[in-house]
Structure formats: structure tokens, C-alpha cells
Design a protein around this nucleic acid. Structure first.
Lengths: 325, 325
DNA sequence: TTGTAGGCGTTATCAC
DNA sequence: GTGATAACGCCTACAA
């Protein structure tokens, strides 16, 4: 494999001239530039980017840390990050963790090891303070609200969003409201619980543990909810479902069993995914695409040095009224 | 940022010894090893992997080229590739192309530039022969049948799979069969058309261009199919739908409009996605997860040098009978 | 406008 | 076991 030295020799110029041509520097005579380009083509020369990375200290790679690839929520976020990265000529290195803390640390280590210029954390199970320790090695942007930190974050206010959904249900006459979560110990679940307890107090309703349906992640989990509802002594009249896919499963199964929506069970989704639009699902648009794009945009500013202080960016959300409430 | 030289100085050893410790080489005395490890911890030393990549000529990165991230078909494949990569400690670099040929070439260029040790092509729009030109720079594995090539491929026989689905429909009494495709000019569409024309001839049915429904990629495209069917003078009694999500949209919309499935319209899907299981969709399991895993496995063998000749691996498929036919 | 030379941070080689 | 020293391939002062 030819290297820059070889090109220089064959073209009868110095390595610096070749390097200048390679990097589109000015101050190279047309004649030499052409001569260099010709031999590059002739010898099918290709730069060894690892050498470039070493000397420049930049890789144009950023890491994207997420638990699963095969999930609509993360796909949508990834799409957004990817869009931003693409237009800025950055590459995405996938760090699929499955919420393994070791894998998460490995991902962060890429920053220490100079393998990436920055990292976007879509979701993690290690603590924000542990993430914070990596800020010394390069910019980090999280897609979750982590409070005041040395790293940036882009997020929606889950408490507010949940509150809005709850108020909407109450306005529609509901008092018996349950909700689903992906996992009980996630930050967004915590944020939602705040709004939920607030509502219970306001309505004077008791906290019914069984109305908080854990481990609802995909469409089949949604379908399984109906079964769980049927065995309850007392059933909620409305359900806040954190994920349009989960809601889709629920709606499908409800129709199959002859439970009419919204009359017998009202449903509000989250994510505003196409599947929900098709089903007439009332949902909260949490701007996943924009969140991903924004995450990259901020990271990019940090990398470029345009922005050095950590940024906290709260995105808007929107209640989209359709026919499931 | 401390480097290996600094560690050597502070620990009172040579850089070679530090390097040996770093790489778990034998022939280092316990005493020096500990001394080195201590100073590494003390100075919070982290290797600059770019230097390692440069000298070793390997990056432990592989590129994964695909048009879209946010699509179930590619998510599933990606999950498979990622699984394999994870267990072999390889990283995935996402190359989202949107079927732009320039972007596809850029992805392949990563191989030339030594940024990756290999590349998995999930789907591309440039020709197999153009891909073949990159074989000189490193191993490539395609998830489509590209015929006899210098690169490896993992695929299912789409003609056979389609034939099987068609035979099944015929056995169930159908003669008027249409099908959907993602894009008209894809290799898999071509493969399917072979089986399709074969069937038409066998049944003595004419080729009806309108029964081949183009641009069906996601759930909403599926829902839109009903509208397209209604305006036809003559309607197919069965539809082969290339993607369970598309089929899901179709089924949902059919039910909404009171078209009973399978009585008035029989549907066979592809992919065996959870959504299809929920809907009772008869489908063909095309082993996406296994395909991804296999693609990585073969690539890995090429990288390791265990396998130098190109491999063509045809995966099995399976017709899963449920209730939509 | 061009070339020389030094350095980026490792690992590999070889001598001791 | 250990340590010099030469690569790896490129970029970039600095000098000319």
C-alpha cells in the first residue's frame, strides 16, 4: 500500500506538498498539484486515517450509547443524531449496552482513549455523577435530564408532560388513572411518578400499586396489558401508556376482546409514532427526532469549541388529540 | 494527558515494559508490573488508541452500511450484526446512506482508509461489481445475494421464498394474487418477480401491473393499500406483503373498513416481526437476526484470516401459518 | 511556493 | 526480563 512518501517520490515533490494537496491547502502550484493528483490516482493511494487521527488528535467519530438498537424509541433518536452527524461529516459509533454498566463504561472509555471526539448518551443505567467523571476527556451530551452537571443534556420535562396528559384525562372525566412504564427505576419514571402522586392527592384517590404496569416496552407487552387489567378487582378507566407501540398492542387487544376505546378504556400514548397516527391514538409528541438532532448540534458546538459551558436544553412537547380518549 | 513515556519515567522503567504491562505480555516481573499499574492509576493514564491503530494496522471497528436506521428490517439486521460484534469486541460504525451512491462509496472508502477492519453491507444501490472493486482493501460481507463475487454474502433465496408463499396461496384456492414491494429496482424484487411470472404462466393469468404495489415500506404505506385496492376494477384476492409492518397497516385498515381477512383478502407477510404474531399474520420468517449474526461471523473469519475465500451462505426460511390466509 | 525535519503515541525488533 | 531504537504514516512549523 502506497503511502505519502511514495507518492512524493513518484511525483517528484516533497511529502509536504502531497499533504497540502491532500488537505486542499492553498499555495501549491497547479502543475505540482496535478502531478500529485495523477500519481495518487495511478497508485490508487488512500490515506491512512489512523495516522491522521493520531497527529490531529481528532477522529471525526462520535459514540452513541444506547441499550438496544432494535427499539422504535432509540431508532428515532438515533435517526436524529445520525442526521446531524451526517451533515457535519461525523461518523457514529454504535455502543449497544443492554444497560450493562460495564458496557456503558466501555463506551465512555472511548472518549478517554481518543477513539471518538464526543459521545451522545441516549439512555444509561450508571449514575449521572459517574458519567460526569468522564467530562475531563471530552464533550458528553445526554438525552435525559440529569440536573446541573458538567455535561450537557437535551430532554423533555417528563413531569410536565405527564401532568398535561393527566389534566387532559381529568377534564374528560377520568378519576381512575393508571400508567405503564418501561422500567420502574428509570429517571423518566421517577419524573412521572411526581405528577402521578400529585394527581392522586388532588383527586383524593389512593395509590394503587397494581395500576402502575411495569415492563411495558413493546407492542406485545401492550397486548398483554388487557390480560393484566381483567384480573384486577378494580380497573382504571384510563391508561397513560409510555410508548405508542405499547399503546398499539393494547388497543389491538382491546378491540379483539370487544373492549371499546375510549368508552371503556381511554388511552394516551407517548412518542407520536406513525403507528399511533394510524390507530387514532391520542398521544404526546416528545420530539424524538429533534431531540437527537439537538443532541448532536450541542455536541458539535462543544467539539468545535463554540460552546464550552454545559448546556441544558428543554424541548417542548405537544398533546395530540385523536380518538383514544 | 500523560503518555506511555511519562508513565515509564515516573515508574522508573522503559516504555517497552509499560507497553508489555498494557498488553498483558508475559515476562514482566511482578514488582515492575505493579509499579507500572500504580502510576497508570495515579496519573489516570489512558491509551491513545489511534497510535495503536496506526502501528497495529487494525482498529477493531467494522462499518455497517444501510440506508435507514429507523426501519424495523434494518434494525433487526443491525441487532444481529451488533450481537456478533459485541461478543467479539468489535465496534460498529454506522454508515447511513439513504441509498445515496456517494454516501455508499464514502462508507466503502473507510475500508481503503484503514478506518475499519471490514464492512457489512445490509443494502446498497451501487452495483455489486462496484462493491467488488473494494475487495482489495479488506473483507466485505453483503446481506443480499450478489451471485459469484469476490466478497461474501449471506442471504435468503427470495425467489424460493416467494414461490413457497405463492404455492401456499394457490393451495388455499387463490388465483388472483398481487404483491407489494419496497422499491421496484431492488434485487429482492427482481428475485420475486421471477417466481411471480412463473405463477402467472402456470395459472394462465395475465400480468396486471397495478397488482404490484410499489413503495410500500412502513405501516402507513400498508394502510394506504386499501385505498389503492378499492379503485381497482379487478381486485386480487390475496396479497404477498413484503414486510410485516406493511401487512399490519393493511390489516388494520381492512378491519376498519369492514373488509374481512382472510375471507375477502388473504395476506402473507415477511419478516416474522412481533407485530405480525400479535395480529395473527401468516408470514415468512426470513431470519433477520441470524442473517446479521452470520454476516458478522463470516466477516470475522475473513478478518482473522481463518477464511480467505469468499463465502456464499444461503439461509433457510420458514412459512409460519397463522390466520391471515 | 516548496522542502526539511520533528513529532504524534504506540508496538515491534533485537540486543543484552 | 529488560531496554534502546526503529518503525507506523501523516501533519506542520520553520526555513529557504
Amino acid at each position: 500500500m502506497a503511502n505519502i512518501k511514495e507518492i512524493a517520490r513518484q511525483a517528484g515533490v516533497s511529502v509536504s506538498t502531497v499533504s497540502r494537496v491532500l488537505n486542499n491547502h492553498p499555495y501549491v502550484s497547479e502543475e505540482k498539484r496535478n502531478r500529485v493528483m495523477d500519481t495518487i490516482k495511478q497508485l490508487k493511494y488512500a490515506r491512512n486515517m489512523n495516522a491522521v487521527h493520531l497527529i490531529t488528535g481528532r477522529t471525526m467519530n462520535i459514540a452513541i450509547m444506547l441499550p438496544f438498537v432494535n427499539h422504535v424509541y432509540f431508532s428515532a433518536l438515533m435517526e436524529g443524531v445520525g442526521k446531524g452527524a451526517l451533515s457535519a461529516s461525523y461518523r457514529l459509533i454504535l455502543c449497544q449496552t443492554g444497560y450493562s454498566q460495564d458496557k456503558e463504561r466501555e463506551a465512555l472509555d472511548m472518549l478517554r482513549n481518543r477513539e471518538v471526539d464526543g459521545i451522545v448518551v441516549l439512555s444509561s443505567s450508571i449514575s449521572p455523577s459517574e458519567i460526569e467523571a468522564y467530562c475531563a476527556y471530552g464533550p458528553i451530551v445526554c438525552c435525559q435530564d440529569a440536573g446541573e452537571r458538567q455535561f450537557s443534556s437535551v430532554y423533555i420535562n417528563h413531569t410536565e408532560a405527564f401532568r398535561k396528559a393527566i389534566r387532559y384525562l381529568i377534564r374528560k372525566g377520568h378519576r381512575h388513572i393508571g400508567f405503564t412504564v418501561g422500567r420502574m427505576d428509570s429517571p423518566s419514571t421517577e419524573a412521572r411518578l411526581i405528577a402521578y402522586r400529585e394527581m392522586l392527592e388532588e383527586l383524593g384517590e389512593p395509590y394503587r400499586k397494581e395500576w402502575i404496569l411495569d415492563r411495558c416496552l413493546d407492542i406485545e407487552d401492550g397486548a398483554a396489558i388487557m390480560e393484566r387489567l381483567f384480573v384486577m378487582k378494580e380497573r382504571p378507566s384510563a391508561l397513560l401508556v409510555t410508548g405508542d407501540h405499547v399503546a398499539a398492542g393494547l388497543i389491538y387487544e382491546a378491540e379483539r376482546r370487544g373492549v371499546s376505546i375510549p368508552e371503556e378504556l381511554a388511552v394516551i400514548g407517548f412518542d407520536n409514532h406513525p403507528i399511533g397516527r394510524m390507530l387514532g391514538l391520542t398521544t404526546i409528541d416528545n420530539q424524538l427526532l429533534q431531540m437527537g438532532e439537538m443532541a448532536f448540534a450541542i455536541l458539535h458546538e462543544h467539539i468545535e469549541g463554540t460552546q464550552t459551558a454545559p448546556v441544558r436544553h428543554e424541548l417542548d412537547f405537544e398533546l395530540i388529540e385523536r380518538a383514544s380518549v
